[in-house]
Simulated assay, not measured.
Amino acid sequence: MKNVLIAALIGVGGIAHAEEGARLRVILVGDSTMATKSGYGDALCARFKPEVACLNLARGGRSSKSYRAEGLWGQVMTLLRDRPVGQTDVVLMQFGHNDQPGKPGRSTDLATEFPANLAGYIEDVGPTGARLVMLTPLTRRSFDAQGHLTNDLRPWAETTIRVAARHHVPAIDLNAISRDAVQAMGETDADTLAMAPKPASAPAQATSSSERAGAANPAFDRTHLGAKGAEFFSGMVAEQLVSTLPALKGWMR
C-alpha cells in the first residue's frame, strides 16, 4: 500500500498549484449511498472550494455491472477524454451495495465479476490521465440484538482494496472507517443519519435498503442518508481523501 500512495502523490503533482491557474474537476461514480438526495456525494462536493467543478454522477441502484451496462460509465469517459488542457480530473469510485446477491441485473459474482469490473474501470481511466481513487462501500447501519453492527459488505470492501493495490491505484477503506464510527455511536444515534425519521415502531425491513434500480425511496432505512448523515460521512471521506492525496488540501474549503 505504501507504493500505491507514493504513486498517487507523484500523479497529483499538478493539482497543488491552484494559484497558477490550474483547474480541478472531481467526478463521483457510485451508487445511492453516494448519489444526490440519498448519499454523501453532494455534501462532499460542497466541501470543495467554489472553483472546483464537482460532478456527482453516482446513481441509485447501480452496481459495478449496471453502471457500465446502462451507459453511465460511457458518459464519464466522454468527460475524461474531452478534458481541457490544464485541468486535472479526479474520479472517486464506490461500488458494492448493489453487487451483492439477489438484485437481478445488478448483482455480480464476488470472486470473478466484481474484481474484473473494477479492474476494467481502472484500465479505462489510465489512458485518460485522470486520477482515480477507489472507495470501499459505505457501511450499513443495522445492529444485531447484542448491539453489534453487522457488516456483510466487508468481502466487497476487501476485494476493492486488493484490486486497487494490484493496479497501483489508491484506495480509501470507507467501509472500515464508517463501520467503526457507527458502531461507536450506537443504534439510536445512528438512526438519526437516515433519510427520514425512524417510525415509532420501525418494521424489520427498515433495517435494510428499499432501493429500487433507479433511486432510493425517501423513507427510513439503515442504508441511505439524510442531511445529517451526508454531512457526517462526507466529512469522513474528505478527511481520508486529503490524507490519501495531500495535494487536494488546497482545493478544500
Score class of each variant (00 low, 15 high):
F114G: 00
R23W: 08
T88A: 10
A215I: 04
G214L: 05
G30D: 03
A206H: 06
R162M: 13
A58F: 00
L225I: 07
T244P: 11
M195D: 02
H148T: 08
T192G: 05
P170D: 14
R68N: 02
L241F: 11
K249H: 13
A145L: 10
K249R: 15
G229M: 02
L44E: 06
V242A: 13
D124Y: 07
Y67R: 01
M34F: 07
Q87D: 13
E113I: 01
F233P: 06
K49G: 14
T244M: 12
G102F: 03
D99I: 02
E231T: 14
F232Q: 06
M252F: 15
W73P: 01
A215G: 02
V125N: 02
A190M: 04
I6M: 12
P84G: 07
A18D: 12
S63T: 00
I10P: 00
C54Q: 10
G86R: 08
A213D: 04
M77P: 03
L28F: 08
L80T: 10
R141G: 03
F220R: 04
E51G: 09
D144P: 03
A190F: 02
M185D: 03
A7N: 14
V91I: 10
A194L: 05
V52C: 14
N175H: 13
P170N: 13
R141T: 07
K198N: 09
V4I: 11
G61T: 01
T192D: 10
A130D: 04
T139W: 01
A200N: 07
L138Q: 06
G147I: 07
N98K: 03
T78C: 04
D144S: 08
E231W: 02
G61P: 00
H17E: 15
T139P: 05
A204Y: 09
G41L: 10
A18N: 08
A116T: 07
F143I: 09
T128I: 08
V125T: 02
A22D: 09
Q75G: 12
L138R: 01
G129Q: 05
S201Q: 14
W251V: 12
Q183M: 08
P101A: 06
A184L: 07
T223I: 05
V26F: 11
Y67E: 01
D221P: 07
Q146N: 15
G147D: 09
A215K: 09
S107V: 01
V76I: 14
A8S: 11
P104S: 03
K37I: 13
G126H: 12
R131Y: 07
G186S: 11
R25L: 11
P203C: 07
R212M: 09
P137M: 06
M93L: 15
K65D: 03
A16I: 10
L110F: 03
K103G: 00
